[in-house]
Amino acid sequence: MKVDLIFKIAAVGMITAILHIVLEKSGREEYAYLITLVGVIIVLGAVITLVSQLFTDVRVLFRLY
């Protein structure tokens, strides 16, 4: 089921949070920002496929052509 995507996103968020802390402690703020960006983009890729699937489902159901 698609429910595990919720946990996946939350886990990615926590890991990026830890990475952010680790990188910030060793004085590399620019990489920390980049890591957050990469995490958001990866998760966004998964979310967008799900949303587009929902939109096609709704389109088929309500005949919105």
Partner: peptide, 23 residues
């Protein structure tokens, strides 16, 4: 002192992140 710890935790965390993305 600053870098060794960072690279170690970086390796572990990137590995974990890849697993979570690939699961």
């Amino acid at each position: 002192n600053t870098n060794e710890k960072m690279y170690r935790s970086l390796g572990i965390l990137v590995g974990l992140g890849m697993i979570i993305i690939l699961i």
